[in-house]
Simulated assay, not measured.
Amino acid sequence: MSDDDRAGRLMHGRPGLERGDPVALPLTMASMFHLPGDPAGAPGYGRVDNPVWEEVERQLSILEGAPALLFPSGMGAISAALMAGLKAGDRVLLPSDGYYTTRLLADRVLARFGVAAAYRPTARYGEGGFDGFAAVFVETPSNPGLDLCDLAAICAAVRAAGGVTLVDNTTMTPFGQRPLELGADVVVASDTKAPSGQSDVILGHLATRDAALFEAAKDWRKLSGAIPGPFEAWQLNRSLPTLEMRFARMCDSAEALAPRLAAHPAVRALRYPGLPDDPGHALARSQMARFGFLIGLTLKDRDTAERFIEAAGLTPATSFGGVHSSAECRARWGDDVPGGFVRLSVGCEPVADLSARIVAALDEIA
């Protein structure tokens, strides 16, 4: 299925509507359902069933090309993928330069259950092989440094070594990169970011074509109680049909901005996979449909970076993927980046105005 087909199916709305049915998805806020007699085959309890979840999971399944499960956050999806698939004595490989909360989960929770974690930088993820790892967790491009690794090669090597590959695709969305088609066993993502786009909901999802992994994650959600709220799911339902358009505009704008930023004297280093001289450019062209909407730029120091964010009128926030452009000094969270490193999330504003504001801010701090 092409991206146009996926976007079109999301735009078509809910299938099977009868005459007089509401076109918009009704919000079902219910903890209990009318359940006389044999409960089989009917919704029973709000921790297990909700028609809003089911519709959003149908949409996400269209996007991913695989059965999907909705969770209350991206970390909820990651936790389900790891906790449902690992057992005491297993080893898991994680990126040392990826989203830091995944590493904290391994250090503070998985270790207590006898799961040992090892770490490698994304750009050298394949070095050393994958023997002995029950699961290999991949994030490409890495967040926040935007390094890349070869997904197809890694997935094939992990499978040959007897492990499973889990890929965090938050930075790219299914319209920018399709890990399952490159050989991944499970894909997870934070729908708080671009899929929602409005910075007003926290959700995440997991998708897999492996029936056993899917059922294990679904069971984990039911038994742990890590369930999404119906209202949050309803909010995401409203945003998913416009994801393809928003993502395309954000990527177009980032591609236009990156060369201007790279050429500015105030910028000491710039990472964007779409630039021909970026270390990950060739790999990005081979495995990504777009180059993404995140740009990493390094300024003189953290004070300079903070002044730049303010002068450019960018939203200083610790998330990304909104319709509004935002930026953050990632060193403040302990990421292994220079103090002046800024993760810029390009939004949907008119690119001429956004570019003018950003360049003017760089001129001011130069």
Results as ranks from 00 to 15, higher is better:
residue 161 A to N: 13
residue 53 W to S: 02
residue 135 A to C: 13
residue 37 G to I: 09
residue 41 G to T: 08
residue 200 D to S: 12
residue 321 G to D: 11
residue 223 L to T: 15
residue 116 A to N: 00
residue 35 L to A: 13
residue 213 L to S: 00
residue 13 G to H: 07
residue 143 N to D: 12
residue 224 S to F: 14
residue 25 L to S: 01
residue 57 E to A: 09
residue 98 G to D: 03
residue 219 D to S: 15
residue 39 P to C: 10
residue 246 R to Y: 10
residue 361 A to F: 05
residue 183 G to V: 12
residue 315 T to S: 10
residue 121 P to M: 12
residue 63 L to F: 03
residue 97 D to R: 06
residue 201 V to E: 03
residue 363 D to E: 12
residue 175 F to E: 05
residue 75 M to R: 11
residue 128 G to W: 09
residue 232 E to I: 01
residue 140 T to C: 09
residue 270 L to N: 14
residue 238 R to Y: 04
residue 358 I to S: 00
residue 103 R to C: 12
residue 21 D to A: 13
residue 345 S to D: 10
residue 122 T to D: 07
residue 249 R to Q: 12
residue 65 G to M: 06
residue 273 P to K: 04
residue 96 S to V: 05
residue 200 D to I: 01
residue 5 D to W: 11
residue 171 T to N: 11
residue 47 R to F: 14
residue 115 V to C: 07
residue 39 P to M: 06
residue 89 G to S: 06
residue 228 P to A: 03
residue 301 D to I: 06
residue 99 Y to H: 15
residue 306 E to R: 14
residue 288 M to L: 15
residue 256 A to C: 02
residue 334 G to I: 02
residue 327 A to P: 04
residue 324 H to S: 11
residue 348 C to T: 14
residue 246 R to V: 08
residue 111 A to P: 00
residue 259 P to A: 13
residue 219 D to A: 14
residue 40 A to V: 14
residue 225 G to K: 09
residue 214 F to I: 09
residue 173 T to W: 07
residue 176 G to L: 08
